[in-house]
Amino acid sequence: MLIDTHSHLYASQFDEDREDELNRCLSNGIEKVLLPNIDSESIQSMHDLVDSNPGVCYPMMGVHPCSIQPETWKEELALAKKHLFEGARNYIAVGEIGIDLYWDKSTLEIQQQAFGEQIQWAKEKNLPVVIHARDSFEEIFEVVDQYNDERLRGVFHCFTGGIEEATRIMDFGGFLMGLGGVLTFKNGGLDKTVAHIELKHFVLETDAPYLAPTPHRGKRNQSSYLNLVALKLADIKGCSLPEVAEITSSNAKVMFGLS
């Protein structure tokens, strides 16, 4: 059985067929779907999906770096913190958090502040973090270096780096790398990096509805496509699909405290 450790299945792109998609997941051997939050606008739809699918969908709480904007970021953080610390729900991680410099470099300072604050929440709650790093590995590493200790653990979501970045992540001690559709891209180059790293360092994810794997690239991604990522990883590592499923699912269960 596979675990999609990062899916936005609560997003509006699935409003027409969300339950059908969950059935497709189960039919394709995907037993659990982990849901990172984006911001205040996504919280209710995420909660609704979790409530209607207990034991299959699991929520995280955090503020996505692209939602860290000068006018609203403090309010966004306050709301997320209230849910995390005062709400009745059991969140499995603080996420999706991090730094994104692809869309807007002008907010770097407040993105760093928000990232650091949310890391501290995770350490206080003994939860992993799920890190979004787009065009920002060095900036991310700078913040993680500041907070890293035996209490900090998590996943570098949608890993697309090279051996140097992977080595830095592994050297932190408590982090895994999330592999998704990019692994299947013909000229992406990620396969060459992954070939040199043991399976024990990875979890699987889709980032649905984004970054669909080949042969669906450019279309809506779905959690039910996770087996395509798993098959590609098995091919790269020269092992069986059951071995990939067993190791990556075990990694996910330990990291996120799943039964």
Rank of each mutant, 00 (worst) to 15 (best):
L22I: 12
I110Y: 14
L101R: 09
E165W: 06
V203I: 14
G181V: 00
I43S: 09
G257E: 03
G178N: 08
E96I: 11
E96M: 10
E139K: 07
D48W: 03
G238E: 06
A212T: 03
R18W: 02
S224C: 07
K32M: 02
G161N: 05
A133R: 04
E41C: 05
P215Y: 13
L152N: 12
G116S: 09
C239V: 13
S136A: 15
D145G: 05
D207K: 02
L84I: 06
V229L: 01
A11L: 09
I3P: 02
Y210A: 14
Q13G: 05
R151V: 05
K232W: 00
V182Y: 14
L152Y: 11
V144K: 13
F137G: 03
D39Y: 11
N28I: 01
F85K: 08
G162I: 15
G189W: 15
R168P: 08
E19H: 12
A114F: 13
K105T: 12
A122W: 04
V129H: 09
V143S: 08
G180T: 03
V194S: 05
P242Q: 12
D145N: 15
H196Q: 13
N227M: 14
L228A: 02
S67M: 03
Y147M: 07
A230K: 01
D39A: 11
N227P: 11
